[in-house]
């Protein structure tokens, strides 16, 4: 293994010494590098600062949702309703701004919607024997209906200052949503590494019965984790509403699968017990890079979806080797 790749992989890895060969860790980096090289050769504009910033901007909401999803997967959970919840949060924001004229209230409404939905999911998962997959599939369908009812089937346009900040604004040349994504990832990194909540997530995902026998309040922690993920989803809903300058009932469609894909590509196994949010960032960037490079290389929209699916499948299959 060449030393630069190894060094980067080491940086991603927790300090804890070299273990067995971590092929899966390198796979993601190699795929990322390959995409960069191929696209850069095909279209030199790809590597321009402008375009790279554009990629980050485009994946910012996904990055926030995927950060929240990371801790759920680590804890052996899953939330399929995050896409629909994102739509509901975005519509709550847009509707509140439209009716009160207050951007602050709009932000609060969106974040609160995310947290409420997350908490309800958490309570359902913690107190039922059914798998999180089935439970959140149900809430997803329900929330899709709620989003259509809220919007009356058409976009809620006009978010005023929210659009000025998240849609148009930047700081030192970096758009505000990108900062929001970085803050989300950093926050999740700190939670996973340095808090009891993060540690409990690892323990529950690794062995729920052992966690219970160690006196961990497993139900309460699960509810807290889904609520936390909901907070991230709410924030992403607010930001995406700002970016689009409107709330749409379909704005979150597909986010659940891309977020879960990003987390799994990033090395967090679906069975839980381990994982990193830095890996998730890698997964998010991979998805963003692939879409962008296909746009630049002139790949048609119908092909893009198929190619993206292939890459996700391949990345996950390679990851299984770890």
């Amino acid at each position: 293994m060449s030393s630069p790749a190894a060094t980067v992989a080491q940086a991603i890895r927790k300090p804890g010494g070299l273990r067995t060969l971590d092929i899966g860790r390198y796979t993601l980096l190699i795929v990322l590098l390959l995409i960069v090289v191929v696209t850069a050769i095909g279209n030199p504009r790809f590597l321009s600062v402008n375009n790279l910033m554009n990629i980050l901007f485009q994946v910012s909401a996904l990055g926030i949702v995927a950060s929240g999803q990371t801790i759920l997967l680590i804890a052996g959970g899953l939330d399929l309703s995050v896409g629909a919840a994102l739509s509901v949060a975005g519509l709550a924001t847009a509707l509140t701004i439209m009716s009160t004229g207050s951007v602050t209230l709009g932000i609060l409404a969106g974040v609160a919607a995310g947290v409420v939905v997350g908490t309800i999911n958490g309570m359902l998962v913690a107190t039922n024997r059914a798998t999180p997959f089935i439970i959140t599939l149900g809430t997803m369908t329900f929330l899709q209906g709620v989003a259509i009812l809220m919007s009356g089937g058409s976009p809620i346009n006009g978010t005023g200052k929210l659009f000025d900040v998240f849609g148009l604004g930047d700081f030192l040349g970096v758009p505000w949503p990108v900062y929001a994504m970085i803050v989300s990832i950093l926050a999740m990194f700190l939670i996973l590494r340095f808090t009891t909540l993060g540690r409990y997530a690892f323990a529950i995902g690794g062995n729920e019965e052992a966690a219970r026998l160690s006196g961990i309040p497993v139900r309460r922690i699960k509810i807290a984790l889904y609520a936390l993920s909901g907070l991230f989803v709410g924030a992403a809903g607010v930001i995406l509403t700002g970016i689009l300058d409107s709330g749409l009932p379909s704005m979150g469609t597909g986010y659940e699968l891309r977020a879960i894909a990003a987390v799994v590509i990033g090395g967090t196994p679906l069975i839980g017990g381990r994982g990193t949010v830095i890996g998730t960032l890698g997964g998010v960037l991979l998805l963003g890079l692939v879409s962008n490079s296909m746009n630049l290389l002139g790949v048609g929209a119908n092909f893009q979806s198929a190619v993206l699916g292939l890459i996700i499948t391949a990345a996950v299959l390679l990851q299984k080797k770890t």
Binding site: G16, R199, F202, A203, G206, N207, A210, L213, G273, R274
Partner: peptide
């Protein structure tokens, strides 16, 4: 293995 240890975590944890 089934009920005691969290196999994916370190000795310390």
């Amino acid at each position: 293995r089934g009920r005691g240890l969290v196999m994916s975590l370190s000795i310390a944890k």
